Amino acid sequence: MAVNAQWLQTALLLGCLAWCISTDLLVRRIANRAVVILLLGWLLFGITDVVRLGGGNNAALQGMLWALPGAAVVLVVGFILFLTGRLGAGDVKLMSVLCLWVGSGHQIVFVLVTALAGGVLALTLPLFNTVPTAVALGIQATNRLFNSRLPLPPALPADLSQGIPYGVAIAFGAMYVLIFPLF
């Protein structure tokens, strides 16, 4: 039972992160639905762990509660960065919810890895700005080859193409901590 729940958690996390990465790269937006699904998934899996472990063991409940202050700090600092135009609202929400997923013991590592990945992302931004064009060309070729009518992604306006798709760095930080920690 626990192994199936672990696979389900990983599938939910990877699916939502892939969703966030793709929309952030193509339209520079992170879907609120993806963030809400992650939040509800954290609540559902956390409550399931609390119930499964029983009332005598409060470790799962304590783990959930200890994750809240760090996520709140990330939300407040992120909101300030959003107000100054340094970070997008979707990025702030995604990072706050993922702070809940990583738990209090790994939140600092998550934030640091995300910041480092964001620096690399900023250095490679010209490469990432070619992704929407490459996807559009791929869809056009598919439409010609298979005589289909797949819709093309919208073109990024010039002001958005300068923005950093920070959801990629946030997803990398979460995957580093939750799925395949290297150290």
Rank of each mutant, 00 (worst) to 15 (best):
A67P: 08
Y166C: 07
G103A: 05
D91F: 03
V76Q: 09
V36G: 08
V120K: 13
L25C: 02
D91A: 01
P151Q: 00
L40P: 05
L43D: 05
G138L: 06
V74G: 08
L182M: 12
Q140M: 13
A2I: 15
M1Q: 09
A59I: 12
I170E: 08
T10I: 14
V120D: 08
L12H: 02
T124G: 12
L25P: 02
M175A: 15
V3D: 15
L83P: 02
G167P: 05
I21K: 08
P132F: 03
G85L: 01
L94V: 02
S161G: 00
A89S: 01
N57Y: 06
R149F: 15
L44G: 13
L112Q: 14
V113F: 04
H106V: 00
G163W: 15
P157D: 01
G90C: 04
L12K: 00
L123E: 03
N57M: 08
S96F: 07
Q6E: 14
V51D: 00
G15M: 07
T130M: 15
D91E: 06
V109A: 14
C16Q: 09
V3Q: 14
I37W: 06
F79S: 09
G63W: 13
A5I: 12
F110S: 03
L68W: 07
V76S: 08
L94A: 05
F172V: 13
T48I: 10
C20V: 13
A18W: 13
L100V: 03
W66P: 04
L12C: 04
L125P: 09
A60W: 00
L87P: 06
I179V: 15
I170C: 02
L38A: 05
I170K: 01
I37F: 12
G55D: 05
G63H: 09
I139Q: 05
L116V: 14
F45Q: 02
F82C: 04
L152M: 14
A89K: 00
L26P: 10
G138K: 03
L123A: 12
V74L: 12
V74F: 08
R149Y: 12
A18P: 06
L25A: 00
N58M: 11
A169H: 07
A174P: 04
G54N: 08
F110E: 01
A134Y: 08
L137S: 14
L44T: 13
A72V: 14
L83D: 10
A174L: 02
F45S: 01
L12P: 01
F79P: 01
C16I: 14
L53K: 09
R33C: 09
L65Q: 13
V36E: 06
S22D: 11
P153G: 02
V135K: 11
L26R: 11
A34T: 10
M95K: 09
